[in-house]
């Protein structure tokens, strides 16, 4: 077995067939495959791109009773994102800043800096929001004070009902799709 053996070669004889029929079959084959590929690709792309579809991600959610939010103060509140899956775990617990000016006059700010989305922190002593990433600063009403952020903090739409503060939440705010 160890002696040199000629490598196996496929047989070279292929029976001749009429050319026109061969070309026709080839074209038919390509056409059928193009159709089949399209039939297959549409659902695959639809599946992968499904998050891009228009969908009512946003809905009203309660941040708790009004007593949690003293007047002229800014408090951190956390809500469970209304659109969530069981395996989202803690990532669906979204924080936000609630400013109660007086009475039922509220402002609810997204946690995300309008520059690149880092979590802004409230400093009650100087009444400023500061961003740990690139030094963006915002005033207590959310207006941009300094640094790279291009606009004021994102604000949730909100309402007061049954002694509770409700916000319309459900998606990460970005410049392309601010909350309200």
């Amino acid at each position: 077995m160890s002696e040199a053996v000629k490598p196996l070669q496929p047989s070279e004889a292929t029976p001749e067939k009429p050319v026109s029929r061969r070309v026709f079959l080839l074209k038919l084959g390509i056409l059928l495959n193009a159709i089949a590929a399209a039939l297959f690709a549409v659902p695959v792309i639809g599946y992968l791109a499904s998050p891009m579809r228009k969908f009512a991600w946003m809905s009203w959610i309660s941040l708790g009773p009004l007593e949690n939010f003293p007047e002229s103060q800014t408090r951190l509140a956390t809500y469970r994102n209304p659109y969530t899956k069981p395996w989202d775990g803690m990532t669906a617990n979204i924080p936000c800043w609630v400013r109660r000016e007086h009475g039922d006059n509220f402002r609810v700010f997204a946690i995300n800096c309008t520059h690149l989305g880092c979590p802004v922190r409230w400093f009650p002593e100087s009444e400023l929001f500061m961003c740990p990433c690139h030094g963006g600063v915002f005033y207590s009403d959310g207006e941009r004070a300094s640094g790279p952020p291009p606009r004021a903090l994102y604000q949730y739409s909100h309402k007061v009902e049954n002694g509770q503060l409700w916000i319309k939440a459900g998606q990460l705010p970005t410049l392309g799709e601010p909350l309200a």
Partner: peptide, 18 residues
């Protein structure tokens, strides 16, 4: 299309399971 691109990357409206 900024908003849509974000959802495509995140696989949903927020950073989560998907």
């Amino acid at each position: 299309i900024g908003g849509r691109v974000v959802k495509m990357i995140l696989g949903g409206p927020i950073i989560a399971g998907e």
